[in-house]
């Protein structure tokens, strides 16, 4: 063989080898993580990527999108779509962004599914409770607003994507579903940016896709309702699934030994009494978020029936501390 030919062959061989190795051996992707406080909660985005630059860019873009969601859906921000809808309750339809329209539609859909246990029109009852300053409303105050909690009076116009609350005094509150929806959309966005695996955690609403770099599923802890903040009741192994937990420990105050928390029963306006926490696992975050609230607001029997008929994956901690794990979740849940 002539040396020149040998040189050329060697160089081609090396280049080919390096490329082969780069694509196979370089399978040491790293986990990149960033937390921000937004939407009144902690948002942590975790992605698996070979490149820190790409990961940072994707995470940055996802946070920007979440900021937009926050502006659209904040209950308190006067400039949000939700505030505009609420201000014009009983007055006129309000044109909203596509995301708001889609989310609100989904919220009403889930309300119908749960027979109103999950209720995006809970606003008028919610504003009477002040968990920060430990103030609760009187019976008559609550009774007065109960007929305003009618989610069937949320009217949609598909032609100009506008939403109207029919009755004056109604208040749309997407707090029980927005985070799960945001987790879905964030996971979608990060996937589109080339992140093959990751976790979008919007408060307790989590959407996990792909696997950890070592190929094992993501591990998501479920908080123990009565323990310290980092005590876990169990650990879920998730792959391409979302999970949400609603708990009576998130926002609450205790008065005369009674715990008043933020998950209200739309039928009474009072905090729901049958659970300490409800965890739902489903491919869609918008489902898990709406259902953790919805199931929490049901009574024990109705909740179990609802889980069974819909074949849902759920982990329940009842008010007495006993637990229930749906059969289809047992394989994914490691109890602590």
């Amino acid at each position: 063989m002539k040396p020149k030919l040998l040189t050329a062959a060697a160089i081609v061989f090396i280049i080919a080898l390096v490329f082969v190795f780069k694509s196979t051996v370089s399978g040491t992707p790293h986990v990149y993580k960033k937390s921000e406080i937004m939407m009144d909660t902690v948002i942590t985005l975790t992605v698996v990527s070979n490149s820190q630059k790409k990961a940072d860019e994707a995470i940055g873009a996802a946070f920007n999108n979440l900021r937009r969601f926050e502006r659209n859906w904040s209950f308190f921000d006067a400039g949000s779509d939700v505030s505009a809808i609420n201000k014009n309750a009983g007055v006129r339809p309000v044109k909203v962004s596509d995301d708001t329209f889609d989310l609100t539609k989904k919220a009403v859909e889930k309300a119908k599914w749960t027979g109103g246990a999950f209720n995006p029109a809970i606003g008028p009852a919610m504003v009477l409770w002040d968990f920060k300053n430990k103030k609760r409303p009187t019976d008559s105050q609550l009774k007065e607003v109960l007929q305003l909690l009618d989610y069937t009076q949320i009217v949609f116009n598909d032609n100009d994507s506008s939403i109207m609350l029919k009755d004056k005094g109604m208040l749309l509150d997407l707090g029980g579903i927005a985070k799960g929806y945001a987790a879905d959309k964030t996971a979608e966005l990060l996937k589109k940016a080339g992140m093959k695996a990751g976790i979008a955690s919007i408060g307790g609403d989590i959407s996990a896709w792909g696997t950890r770099p070592d190929g094992s599923p993501w591990r998501v802890g479920i908080r123990a309702p009565r323990g310290a903040p980092d005590d876990l009741a169990g650990v879920l192994s998730l792959k391409d699934l979302a999970v949400s937990t609603g708990g009576d420990y998130e926002r609450f105050f205790i008065e005369d030994g009674i715990r008043y928390h933020h998950i209200l029963n739309p039928a009474t306006g009072y905090p729901a009494r049958d659970f300490q926490s409800v965890t739902v696992v489903n491919p869609e975050g918008v489902v898990t978020d709406a259902l953790d609230t919805g199931i929490f607001a049901m009574d024990r029997e109705k909740a179990l029936r609802f889980i069974k008929t819909n074949n849902l994956m759920a982990y329940l901690v009842f008010a007495d501390g006993s637990t229930f794990t749906s059969e289809n979740l047992r394989e994914l849940l490691e109890n602590r």
Binding site: V18, F21, S26, T28, N50
Partner: peptide, 9 residues
């Protein structure tokens, strides 16, 4: 360079 490009980043 080989170590950085191929094995550990």
């Amino acid at each position: 360079l080989a170590v950085y490009a191929v094995f550990i980043q």
